[in-house]
Every structure is written in structure tokens, then in C-alpha cells.
């Protein structure tokens, strides 16, 4: 697992049933592109988050494939429909095989 990886997600706590909400996510990750060289001229190996998924109560909202061209600390903003109260599950898949998870509850009212 890469060091200092911390997912952050902003989801409203409440929504009307069927409302469209905006979700913002950020994860601290260096996203080493595999293009840079260190001081000895050797290429620093690629180490990025290659996939991000967001689900609500098991139904998919968005599935993003990230490439090395995504900036350090990948930020993603998207919209989701909230049909009922429930839980958002967010997952980030690292090149090294680790998966970072975060979830947020949302209530109707």
C-alpha cells in the first residue's frame, strides 16, 4: 500500500427522494506517471490509481478508468440520483493491488 493515501468524499447528509446530488471525491495519492526520471536518470516506475467506482445500495453510479494523465491527488466530481435512503460505497483501486474504500450514508427528508 502506498503511503499517506487518504480518501475524502463530500456527500450531502440529506436529500429528497429522487433528487440529483453532486458528489465530490478526492484521494491523496502521488499518481506517479512512469514518465518521470529520478536524479540518476532512471525512470520512476508507474504507480497510480487505475480505477474508481461509486455505488449506491449496490447499484452503480459511475465507474472510471484512470490513466497516468490524471493529476496527483485525483479529484472526481459527478452526479447521482438518490431514490431512497441508503449508503454510497466508493472504491479506489491502486496499481499495487490495494483497494481504498470509503462509504457515506444519506437519509431522505
Amino acid at each position: 500500500m502506498a503511503k499517506g493515501v487518504k480518501p475524502r468524499v463530500k456527500v450531502p447528509k440529506k436529500a429528497e427522494a429522487g433528487e440529483t446530488i453532486t458528489i465530490k471525491t478526492l484521494i491523496s495519492h502521488k499518481m506517479e506517471s512512469g514518465q518521470r526520471k529520478d536524479s540518476d536518470g532512471k525512470i520512476i516506475p508507474r504507480s497510480i490509481i487505475n480505477r474508481f467506482t461509486a455505488d449506491f445500495n449496490g447499484q452503480n453510479v459511475i465507474d472510471v478508468t484512470l490513466e497516468p494523465a490524471i493529476s496527483t491527488n485525483p479529484y472526481l466530481q459527478f452526479e447521482a440520483t438518490v431514490p431512497e435512503a441508503g449508503k454510497f460505497d466508493f472504491k479506489w483501486y491502486d496499481d499495487d493491488g490495494s483497494v481504498y474504500e470509503e462509504s457515506k450514508e444519506i437519509s431522505i427528508g
Partner: peptide, 10 residues
């Protein structure tokens, strides 16, 4: 990047 949209994406 490639964004795939699920059923809950309005």
C-alpha cells in the same frame, strides 16, 4: 480517463 455511467447517474 474513461467514465462509465451506471443506472443511478442522471
Amino acid at each position: 480517463a474513461t467514465f462509465k455511467f451506471g443506472p443511478l447517474n442522471p
